[in-house]
Design a protein around this nucleic acid. Structure first.
Lengths: 155, 155
DNA sequence: GTAAAACCTCAACCTTAGTTGAGGTCAAGC
DNA sequence: GCTTGACCTCAACTAAGGTTGAGGTTTTAC
């Protein structure tokens, strides 16, 4: 029979334990490691062992993903955190504030889009000429002139 | 020298013209056609010709995409529109209202996430035990019990 | 009537975020 | 000391939403 449910020796966690406790598949943890989002130590037998802090790190990754931030950006943001010691509350907090700002921006853009869609229910058209939602000539011709109102080119 | 800038005979548009006027690449229009989002007639020489209405249709597709709706769903929604005649204002309007509702839902979820992130700046932690943002045990154990507050499983 | 732009199809490739499977190793319990 | 589950690597596959290129045809303008 296999190993019981309690953690690996030394307070570190095996990949399977991290998977169970974080709700993320083992394959995903491997994948995150290839992307530099998490790191692991290895046993003599080449098996991954994670410090407990990885659980928080994975939690942060998942929350950030829900805000719509791509993994590459999350990885970049996480490099601001210390390697060896556990990050302080303030360090996590700074990260949260960054992502909150991005989230606010996304919300702002979606809200604007919704409101314009609202107006366009009035005209029922999405007219190419007059609708603020869609005037491709402007959007194309004036690279960044006035047609950046919308989400389209804003990323 | 090639063709001038004015439309094809008969008031229909070539794929290049649609691309120019809609701001969408020719390859994308081909792609949309394979996905059933737009349709074309063919000349004797097998070249695509679009009725002018395609511009509005493409505009609608692009707007819907900005709300985050996948192409397959957009395609489905567009099947509610008539094939032959141009859709009425009311028909476009109904579509807008549907998408507006989805947009509202997305905004609601992102706002909730932001507010929870807000609270968590207070605790600076994203704690696995206490933070509403992240309690994977609950989320996993109780498939749909109470942990569907967040975006994660909500789609 | 010919050059060149624009068009055609089809297959292959790209990115993001993973999952799946093959083939082989490690470790825990009896 | 052997079985069995957990682990390892690496390659291939998935899905969405396209883009790129090869090889060939049509249109248009002069």
């Amino acid at each position: 029979m296999p190993k019981s449910d309690f953690p690996c020796a030394g307070g570190t966690l095996s990949v399977g334990e991290v998977a169970k406790r974080s709700g993320v598949a083992v394959s995903t943890l491997h994948f995150y490691e290839t992307r530099g989002l998490i790191r692991s130590l290895r046993t003599e037998g080449n098996q991954r062992r994670y410090p407990r802090g990885v659980l928080r790190r994975v939690a942060v990754i998942k929350v950030a993903q829900r805000t719509g931030i791509p993994l590459a950006s999350i990885q970049e943001a996480l490099t601001t955190l210390p390697d060896s010691r556990a990050p302080t509350a303030e360090e996590w907090s700074a990260l949260s504030r960054t992502w909150q700002a991005e989230l606010n921006e996304r919300i702002r853009r979606l809200t604007q889009l919704r409101d314009q869609l609202d107006d366009c229910i009035g005209c029922g058209c999405l007219s190419l000429k007059t609708c603020p939602l869609r005037n491709p000539q402007d959007a194309l011709g004036a690279q960044g002139a006035g047609a950046r109102l919308l989400e389209a080119n804003a990323d």
